[in-house]
């Protein structure tokens, strides 16, 4: 409870995921916050040119917020920028579209409001920082973020053992190895457990997926383009199958 004993005031920092227009000059701002998880709050007057919030509540901004709990939506009373990732990203179209897909995925993977999602928050901060710094191909940053987000949500694809029977790659080697990738199966399977319609990704693609999950950037950066393209396709399909939602931004992602 706040000082006046009636209104609950709280402070948290988070990344602005998206905004919706509300009424004449307000916006509903969706934030993935460090402690509170995904929150939706009203920013009053933010669309006016003289708003005290200015550009602080634009998507991609890492902000420190002071809010009070409302009846249906919370209300933002103060906002301070910690890091404006959007400024860099909007000036580079492929990175902007990549970043948008990351924001939408983070939103879809936190379906329940105010349920703490610290690991998802830290992943998003790390992903946006990597995207902004430009040290890696945006496609790789996006796929690393998607694969790790799935892992955090409990949907990590099985890449080193059969998703169905648990046979390791070494054990499966005599009978053809782990070559089939099934969306419904949960990753790679041995030939015995292969589901109809499974893909057969190249070994280099599987190695790239493992590297992205582990954060082995030396391997990922050196990977071949065809493996990167196949990895993006598999990751996007796997994500959308498990989310049971399409990620609208993914089809607009432009690769440099």
């Amino acid at each position: 409870m706040g000082e006046n004993g009636l209104v609950a005031i709280y402070r948290d920092d988070g990344i602005v995921l998206r905004t919706h227009k509300l009424g004449e000059a307000d916006r509903i701002v969706t934030v993935l916050a460090r402690k509170s998880g995904r929150i939706r709050a009203v920013a009053k007057g933010v669309r006016r040119t003289k708003s005290r919030f200015g550009a602080r509540l634009e998507p991609f901004t890492h902000v420190d917020l002071l809010l009070y709990t409302g009846r249906s939506l919370d209300v933002i009373t103060q906002a301070e920028t910690l890091r404006p990732y959007g400024e860099q990203l909007a000036a580079d179209y492929p990175r902007y579209t990549t970043g948008t897909a990351m924001l939408e995925t983070a939103e879809k993977l936190t379906p329940v409001e105010k349920e703490p999602a610290m690991r998802q928050f830290l992943l998003l901060v790390g992903g946006l920082r990597a995207l902004g710094e430009g040290g890696h191909d945006p496609r790789l940053v996006l796929d690393a973020f998607l694969l790790r987000s799935l892992a955090v949500a409990g949907y990590a694809p099985a890449l080193e053992e059969c998703a169905v029977c648990g046979t390791t790659a070494l054990q499966a080697a005599p009978s053809g190895g782990l070559r089939a990738f099934g969306l419904a199966s949960g990753g790679l399977t041995c030939q015995n457990c292969r589901a109809p319609g499974s893909a057969t990704p190249a070994l280099g693609t599987v190695a790239l997926m493992v590297a992205l999950l582990r954060g082995d950037w030396d391997h990922a950066d050196a990977s071949e383009r065809r493996h990167q393209v196949e990895c993006s396709g598999l990751t996007a399909a796997y994500l959308q199958w498990h989310l049971e939602h399409s990620i609208r931004s993914l089809k607009h992602v432009e690769h440099a």
Partner: peptide
């Protein structure tokens, strides 16, 4: 900066 505003309230991106 918006005309008629105050510098201290400008956010970092706008001021930049």
């Amino acid at each position: 900066l918006p005309v008629g505003g105050e510098l201290e309230y400008a956010d970092e991106v706008t001021l930049g």
